[in-house]
């Protein structure tokens, strides 16, 4: 475990952690302690589960050098499907709710297979499946909202708590831990990272990059399904808007958390922390009674800043050790004055 311990508290995680602490403290002060009362805390953690899960879902595809635009639509579609299954087809609440996971994984599997077999850019494949699922989601529920009263037992889970913290938050944390173990300790996890880090080297070492891509998309879909399950348990009902605002947060968490967009790395703790920061921004927005769109603005700006800074740092580091970054687009593209 030395390696993990060493990488666990890298400086970036530490910075993020500090921001979380400072942010929470600041919110506590501005709300005169209201932010730390039990209802606020419960709300905070309840609605932190989904950002963490979709951040992880995106992170898994980024790890192999892919991306998943369909994160939100998989979540929206599966939750609405579960709602319809339970309310109209009489499927038992638990079976219906857990169908989210299966359907999510299947859609992810389809995404991955399409990327591998058609060799179409993953961007376009997931853009297409996103569109299809958005249509399907609307087809399922139209403009109505299916109330969570139809799945009281599942909804009860959303309000249950363990050690004073909502159970569904623990679910998200459990997923993060499972991923953490999978990426650092299983052969499959390492193969995924090898494919993302250097597909040619991976191929020469006998690792199937195609398999890595399919697995990553499937796991990503599965995690969207879990996020959808969590939504089902925590929202008062499902409708066509579920998943609509997941896309940016799904990218924001891993990017701010330190995942390289080029593939080959994961940052689970960083992703969780970054999702927490985004959630803090949202809480602050509510506290200051600003329009919800402010959150998007702030997060968008932070993401831009993070990638730009990270890139500048990489280039400077490369210069310092006097290695020409041959082939990197920075050195080869003339700078725009």
């Amino acid at each position: 475990m030395n390696r993990s311990a060493a990488s666990f508290f890298t400086s970036q995680n530490f910075t993020l952690f500090a921001i979380v602490i400072v942010g929470a403290a600041a919110l506590g002060v501005t709300s005169h302690g209201g932010f730390f009362d039990s209802i606020s805390v419960t709300t905070f953690f309840t609605f932190l589960a989904v950002p963490i899960l979709i951040g992880l879902a995106q992170m898994v595809t980024l790890a192999v050098g892919q991306l998943n635009l369909a994160v939100g639509s998989i979540g929206g579609f599966t939750s609405c499907l579960a709602g319809v299954l339970i309310s109209s087809l009489g499927v038992s609440p638990w079976v219906g709710a857990l169908s989210c996971l299966v359907v999510g994984a299947v859609v992810g599997l389809i995404n991955g297979s399409l990327v591998v077999f058609t060799r179409i850019n993953g961007f376009i494949v997931t853009l297409a499946t996103m569109t299809i699922l958005l249509g399907a989601q609307y087809g399922l529920v139209g403009t109505r909202t299916i109330s969570s009263t139809k799945w009281e037992s599942v909804y009860a889970l959303g309000r249950a708590s363990l050690l004073g913290i909502p159970v569904i938050f623990w679910i998200a944390i459990a997923m993060a831990i499972v991923l953490r173990l999978a990426f650092s300790h299983t052969v499959t996890g390492r193969h995924l990272l090898a494919s993302g880090g250097n597909p040619i080297a991976a191929g020469l070492a006998g690792i199937s990059n195609d398999r890595s891509v399919v697995i990553a998309h499937t796991v990503s879909g599965l995690l969207c399904g879990v996020a959808s399950f969590v939504s089902l348990a925590s929202l008062s009902g499902v409708n066509q808007s579920v998943g609509g605002d997941w896309l940016l947060s799904s990218f924001a968490a891993p990017i701010i958390g330190g995942v390289a967009l080029t593939g080959g790395s994961v940052a689970i703790f960083g992703t969780v922390l970054a999702a927490t920061i985004v959630r803090l921004v949202d809480s602050a927005r509510a506290e200051l009674q600003l329009a919800p769109s402010w959150v998007n603005f702030v997060v968008g700006a932070v993401v831009l800043g993070t990638v730009a800074l990270g890139r500048f740092r990489a280039v400077r580091a490369a210069r310092r050790i006097k290695q020409p970054v041959a082939g990197s687009s920075v050195t080869i593209v003339e700078s725009a004055q």
Partner: peptide
């Protein structure tokens, strides 16, 4: 052909 994100040890044993 190495995976830059990995350690020396892991790169050596990558094929198995």
């Amino acid at each position: 052909n190495v995976v830059p994100e990995f350690t020396v040890g892991e790169n050596i044993v990558l094929s198995r």
